[in-house]
Write a protein that binds this DNA or RNA. Structure first.
Lengths: 345, 345
DNA sequence: CTCTTTTATGAAACCCATTTCATTAATTTA
DNA sequence: TAAATTAATGAAATGGGTTTCATAAAAGAG
């Protein structure tokens, strides 16, 4: 069952395909009676022009490729929502893929998006030293970016010239650590994610700098790097609690880690924030519904998505854009942190 | 800067485009020396065939359209993950859109997917009485489904002939209510979502039936319908707690509602499950990390997505498929429910 | 050493819409 | 009324591949 084409309509209406096209797009005047005849046929056959043919000719698809690391982490759907809202208004749709940190899959999808001739690409989540570790992906990414407008969202890739839109994660982490220091904490640990991800690396660096500047203890065993999941947070916190020298507060690479950390603390019989303060990052929707409500750093995921699409749009229009677009995060103090109370035994 | 085409390669290699195509696809033997020459050019120009042209000719895009109500609710990303995994193996990618229950947007996207000639459509979230309430969307959906293989995921639409893959949500709710009854609860409330959504309607009906069969109280003021968000759960629970006759247990339309309900209870100074039992639905990843861990009904979101893609694949291959594919949910008992203790004052 | 296959290749048709160019018909202007 | 616009339409080129058909060259069979 072949679909109806513009030729079928033209034939039946005794006009040329050019005329049907003109009715369809209103690109040139068509006699009223002709238009009516054609429109009636379009209606009755429920004809819809073939987008592929149009795309081929116009050399644009109206599709933006989006590669996210893990849609299962509520932060990304939030970014997606922001991006989608903006894209929808501009008439774009998303070809979406979940990479789950799988290099091969990422490379695969990048390839595929090029083949599908998407109009632009949003690549979320950067890597440190990508070139050394994954030359294939790095190469693919650069090749694609040289042909299709591409923006890197919330990630950096060393030595690359990609345009990026990102939260100042370093500043955000500093906000979190400073908050804890102001609450009187001196023993602050860091729970991180995969160490090769730029997010994790940037946050760890910021954590170290603030502690160092404040002249506080910087123990290696308090600087953990695992992954971005809830379970990772749990594991890391368990580990911290097993140490003879325990921190009184913890900064986490994201809210999922923070939730896991709190869970582990509670399971170990501690209370948050009474016994230990925990601060997250991202401000996922759940952060202010969790018990206790999470003190966290908001990076306004929605804005991030919206901005990324905005920048991409400019690039697609051929405009020059700044290489970096930085968004400022801010601290949201809720219930998971509090003033340090001395536990004199 | 036009992209390299197969003609450019052919010209430079002094062969016809047919030969280049054969090298590209391995569809016919090509002399070794010719192949080498062509492959070298493909490499050096970093040529990638235009997918639009291929799609136009083959009349297939390798794209599946996916319409989800709200990616921000962790249940959907889970379904997506399952679907994507299956689709990726079959060589398909997703054109994704978030409808947020917006009829116009849904209709829009449906239209768009038809125009883009996606190979199949997964439509998530059904409506009751769609035909009466939203004739336009209903019509669009049926028209599209008559041209493009379409499966409805976890939703029913009255009087429609769409193929659907769904969890037996009625049975799942029954499981939840029965569990509470077995724990000794007699006063059980229901927190629902938007009443025109089939999910909500089906669950409410099941709740009523079980209570009725067990001869238990069925108060209208204990049957709430709001929305699927956390805040909705909160609002509804607050309302319940304001009643003179309070339930001792609550079944929720989803985990988000359950989390909100628990939050409201805790804010009102109650404990869950000591003072009131709460059971959710979906088993989102967070369910077993929330404090208290959620007793809930798992509908194996991953399987749902995987199955949906499987069925769609069969349809795309022209096979006949059953009209309904039902998956069995199961109860997961965790910490948010417990035996009713009599509070004799 | 012919005859039949098989291999290797190119020309051209095809997929379906858009758009330019040309042509004729209808108006408007001078 | 002739000249100049403007309206209305069609033929054909275009976009970038895949595939059929035809043909020439090479290989195998008898």
């Amino acid at each position: 069952m072949r679909q109806i084409t513009i030729y079928d309509i033209a034939k039946e209406a005794n006009v040329s395909v050019a005329t049907v096209s003109r009715v369809l797009n209103g690109t040139a005047p068509v006699r009223k009676s002709t238009r009516a005849k054609v429109e009636a046929l379009i209606q009755s056959y429920n004809f819809q022009p073939n987008g592929m043919a149009r795309s081929l000719l116009k050399n644009e698809t109206g599709i933006i490729g989006l590669i996210v690391p893990d849609l299962t982490n509520p932060f990304y759907p939030e970014v997606f929502a922001g991006a989608e809202h903006a894209a929808h208004q501009l008439g774009y749709t998303f070809l979406l893929s979940n990479s789950i940190g799988d290099y091969a899959k990422e490379s695969d999808y990048l390839h595929l998006m090029r083949e599908k001739r998407v109009d632009g690409i949003l690549f979320m989540g950067g890597r440190v030293n990508l070139k050394q570790c994954e030359p294939h992906l790095a190469q693919e990414l650069e090749q694609v970016a040289s042909v299709i407008p591409t923006v890197l969202v919330n990630g950096a890739i060393r030595n690359s010239n990609l345009v990026s839109v990102l939260t100042d994660e370093g500043a955000g982490t500093a906000l979190a650590v400073q908050h804890l220091i102001e609450l009187g904490h001196r023993d602050i640990a860091f729970l991180g994610g995969e160490s090769h991800m730029s997010t994790a690396a940037i946050k760890l660096r910021a954590y170290r700098k603030v502690l160092k500047d404040a002249g506080l203890k910087l123990l290696p065993e308090w600087q953990l790097m695992d992954s971005f999941s809830i379970d990772s947070g749990k594991r890391q916190m368990k580990h911290l609690l097993s140490l003879t020298e325990r921190p009184t507060a913890v900064v986490c690479v994201n809210d999922y880690n923070a939730i896991g950390a709190i869970k582990a603390a509670v399971e170990a019989g501690l209370s948050v924030p009474e016994d230990i303060s925990v601060v997250g990052f991202d401000d996922i929707p759940l952060a202010h519904h969790f018990i206790p409500e999470l003190t966290t750093v908001s990076q306004q995921a929605n804005d991030l998505g919206r901005t990324a699409v905005g920048v991409l749009k400019q690039m697609m229009e051929g405009q020059k854009v700044k290489k970096q677009h930085m968004l400022e995060p801010h601290l949201i103090v809720r219930q998971s942190t509090r003033t340090l109370v001395q536990h004199d035994v």
